[in-house]
Simulated assay, not measured.
Amino acid sequence: MKTDTPAAEAAPPCAAVRRGRPRSEAAELAIFTAVEDLMAGGANLSDLTIEGIATAAGVGKATIYRRWPNKEALLVDVVGRLEIAMPESSGTGAREDLVAMIDYMRRRGLAKRSRWILKAAFGQMHSLPELHKAYYERVVRPRREAALALVRRAVDEGVLRADLDIDLLGDLLMGPILYRSILWDDSDLEDPELAAKMIDALLDGLAPGL
């Protein structure tokens, strides 16, 4: 994929370091809004350019390049901004935090269905390898690591069996909601008790024997 970064400022697609002067929240909001508006108007991610985004936002290209090294880094932040924030630990126990994690995935699935821009972004991202890689490194990997850390804590607290591989436990816990929210487009995600039902059904089989 070609980017609009000048040669002197070129950076790897997944680079996330921001440089230059302190951020202007107004300028960043204008840039984010411009990308969302361009997409809402039918622009594809591959068609967006730094020049076009700058024009739509009413800022200079240098304003964008001071904040993002390339288009991919900017688009990852745009998509990340539209997503639902991950929940903080409840402090009440691993079972409750597992439910909160699954419910986060449920609500995220609903948002992807209801927000056209998110749906379009995720639909196009797989055809843009550099953007997909940047998104994976910046968003997906940290989210998975947080989920696996929660699984380890659940094992330590005796909520989950200790004789199973942590990655396998994570897949067993996260797989059902990912299937419903990503692969099964017409599944029922409206039920606010769905996460608790899923976790309790799994814990019946994954909890240590008495």
Rank of each mutant, 00 (worst) to 15 (best):
P22W: 01
A57W: 00
A100K: 05
A43V: 11
W68K: 04
A26M: 13
E88M: 13
P87H: 06
C14E: 15
A94R: 00
I84M: 04
I53E: 05
R21K: 15
R19P: 01
G93K: 00
R106K: 07
K71M: 11
G93M: 02
R18S: 15
G41H: 05
R106C: 02
A30K: 03
K71E: 13
M101K: 03
A40R: 15
L75I: 09
L45P: 02
M101F: 03
T33P: 04
R81T: 14
Y104S: 00
M105T: 06
S89T: 08
R107N: 08
E28Q: 12
R108I: 11
L38P: 03
R66H: 12
G52Q: 00
G41P: 03
E36N: 12
T49S: 03
G80W: 09
V76T: 05
L75S: 00
S24M: 10
M101Y: 01
V76E: 00
A40F: 10
I84D: 01
R19N: 11
S89A: 15
M39R: 10
D103N: 07
A15Q: 08
E96S: 09
I64G: 01
L45S: 05
E51L: 12
I31A: 04
R67W: 04
S89F: 10
E88Y: 08
E72K: 09
D47V: 07
E25A: 15
R95D: 04
A56T: 04
T49C: 01
E28R: 12
R107T: 03
W68H: 13
Y104A: 01
